[in-house]
Simulated scan of single mutants.
Amino acid sequence: MKQAALARAAGKCERCTAVLKPREGEVDHILPDILGGEPVLANAQVLCGVCHAEKTADDIRRTRKADRQRDKASGAIRPAGKLRGPAFQKSAKAPQIDKSALPTSPRRNLFQRLEQS
């Protein structure tokens, strides 16, 4: 598979098209194995050292994100606490009502028998 990828690239980096010296190209997976990439020619590319280092850094970032999502979904990681930020604005206080000025009705005992007429 590596030989076929190198032959397809024809001595050039498939990302930046830089001309590669013999044995300078690095065969890399387009989609890494850990993220579901298959070991087939369609998933292989030949990169120069600089492009390969950049892509590897991006692959590591994507892999770590997938790991965090998997762990959160499986319950291995407890979800973060509540969001901290500005709360709703407090509304103006309603005016206080003097309850002693309201008319009252006499209370009756709920357990007292009513007189039948």
Rank of each mutant, 00 (worst) to 15 (best):
A76T: 04
D71P: 02
R78K: 12
D71I: 02
M1V: 09
K72M: 13
A42F: 05
S105A: 13
G36D: 07
V19W: 05
D67K: 10
S91D: 10
C16H: 04
N109A: 06
K82W: 06
G36S: 06
A87V: 11
P32L: 07
C16S: 06
G25Y: 00
R113A: 15
F88D: 10
S105K: 15
V46Q: 00
E24K: 03
D58Y: 07
L35P: 00
A42E: 15
A66D: 11
I34V: 15
I60S: 05
Q96L: 10
H29N: 12
D98L: 08
P106H: 05
I97C: 11
L6M: 09
T56Q: 06
L41V: 13
A4S: 06
T56D: 05
A42N: 13
R15A: 08
K2Q: 09
A57S: 13
A73F: 02
T17H: 00
G25D: 00
I77G: 01
S74R: 12
V50R: 14
P32R: 05
I34W: 07
H29W: 07
E115D: 09
L31P: 02
P86M: 11
C16M: 06
F111W: 12
D58G: 08
L6Q: 04
R68D: 13
L31M: 13
F88S: 12
A101T: 15
R62W: 05
G81Q: 02
D58H: 12
D28W: 00
G49I: 12
C48D: 11
R113N: 14
A76P: 01
C48E: 04
A53K: 15
L102Q: 02
S105Y: 11
R108M: 02
R108C: 01
S105C: 08
C13M: 02
T17M: 00
L31T: 15
A18K: 04
R108Q: 08
N43G: 10
G25F: 00
A44V: 03
P106L: 03
A76Q: 04
G85L: 05
R15S: 08
Q3T: 04
K12Q: 01
L35V: 03
L20V: 01
L41N: 07
T17V: 00
E14L: 01
A44H: 11
S117P: 15
L114Y: 06
C51G: 10
L102S: 01
N109P: 01
F111D: 14
R107Q: 14
P32V: 10
A80W: 04
Q45P: 02
Q69A: 14
T63R: 09
K82D: 05
L83Y: 10
I97P: 04
A5S: 09
Q112L: 03
T56F: 08
